[in-house]
């Protein structure tokens, strides 16, 4: 803006008014400005949202919803990153290869973020095991800074990836090995310092442990990571999203079946903002906080999650059509954390 001193524009204002007292009315100018000023733009509500689309060649937030243990890769490529071997007790040894690499990712149309990633994607690949399985993660740091993987879950201290001696230097390797427990919806992230930067640059992912014995009821399962990006490094996020790309699910709604059980694994990995939330339009869902119990603790349509907090949400769509979901912090919603479900099938009244 051109900074007129307060004096010069007040000065002008006075003059404009005075001029109005004479031959022409400055007020009439203002009045004219007022009338009809908003006719056009009041109908422009659809103009909200970014311009253009993000290429999904590199990372598809929709594909991320339903992929775990590298199930999005062809078998020959998948074996490079994930192998499972049965063990005598009936559990599995699950071996993963996780690589930290620097990569520039597109987080809103035309906006590129110099991310630190696990396996070239943000969020990192989703790891999923059954309670009691042995998890063995070979971590290779090919990034430009020291990194670690810190898993949430039971594990011995040397597998914690948090203390200075746990840092894996660039070019270095470390094998994390532990039993998957307890069952629930967990996460993993880099715990190198400065912690805030290592997390907000993109080093995080989802770690799901399914209950052993009787599994959860079959459902359409969706991984939803609430995240944000501070593109100008002012400790405030410019972009918010579910699964990284701002407003992605506005253009590519999450397709679900009316009447089928839908299970959402939701985690808040937003930095800088204390809390984030998920609000689903037109329905309610059952909440299993941290997913560690088979008993739902509440039924609501809006759930608030602190940084690192997560929950499993279950619902069934009653009506076909589009349902919006977004953070109930309106600011986050309008900065990208907003999307749509699209339910198909015959309407089911319960």
């Amino acid at each position: 803006m051109i900074p007129f001193s307060r004096r010069s524009w007040l000065r002008l204002a006075g003059l404009g008014t005075a001029a109005g007292a004479g031959l022409l009315s400055a007020r009439s100018l203002a009045g004219q400005a007022k009338s009809g000023a908003y006719d056009a733009i009041h109908h422009a509500a659809h103009a909200m949202g970014p311009v253009g689309r993000v290429s999904t060649d590199l990372f598809d937030p929709s594909g991320f919803l339903r992929a775990w243990n590298f199930s999005n890769l062809a078998p020959d490529k998948r074996s490079r990153f994930y192998r499972e071997t049965p063990r005598p007790d009936g559990t599995l040894l699950r071996e993963y290869e996780i690589i930290a690499v620097d990569r520039e990712i597109e987080i809103a149309p035309g906006v590129f973020f110099p991310a630190w990633t696990f396996n070239g994607q943000v969020p990192g690949p989703t790891l999923r095991a059954t309670e009691g399985d042995r998890v063995k993660v070979t971590f290779l740091n090919q990034g430009s800074h020291p990194h670690t993987i810190h898993f949430h879950g039971w594990h011995p201290p040397e597998m914690d990836g948090s203390l200075p001696e746990h840092q894996v230097m660039p070019g270095g390797r470390f094998v994390y090995e532990f039993d998957a427990e307890p069952f629930g919806m967990h996460l993993y992230h880099c715990h190198a310092v400065p912690l805030k930067r290592h997390i907000h640059k993109g080093l995080y992912g989802v770690f799901i442990v399914d209950p052993k014995g009787e599994p959860r009821p079959a459902a359409d399962e969706l991984i939803m990571v609430m995240n944000g990006f501070d593109t100008n490094f002012d400790a405030d996020n410019e972009v918010y999203a579910v699964n990284t790309v701002a407003h992605h699910f506005m253009h590519d709604p999450i397709r679900v079946q009316v009447g089928s059980l839908v299970r959402m694994y939701v985690v808040n990995l937003t930095e800088f903002d204390l809390i984030n939330s998920l609000h689903l339009h037109g329905m309610f869902f059952d909440v299993y906080r941290t997913g560690t119990s088979r008993q739902s603790t509440e039924t609501t349509d809006t759930i608030m999650l602190c940084q690192g907090e997560r929950a499993v949400l279950e619902t069934r769509f009653r009506y076909p059509g589009r349902f919006m979901f977004h953070a109930h912090q309106s600011e986050f919603a309008e900065l990208g954390w907003m999307g749509l479900f699209e339910a198909t099938g015959a309407r089911r009244d319960t």
């Binding site: 290429s55 060649d57 590199l58 690499v101 620097d102 990569r103 520039e104 990712i105 597109e106 590129f112 070239g120």
Partner: peptide, 10 residues
């Protein structure tokens, strides 16, 4: 001749 087909990576 080297060609980079990985977007965003050096």
């Amino acid at each position: 001749v080297l060609r980079n087909e990985d977007a965003g990576m050096t």
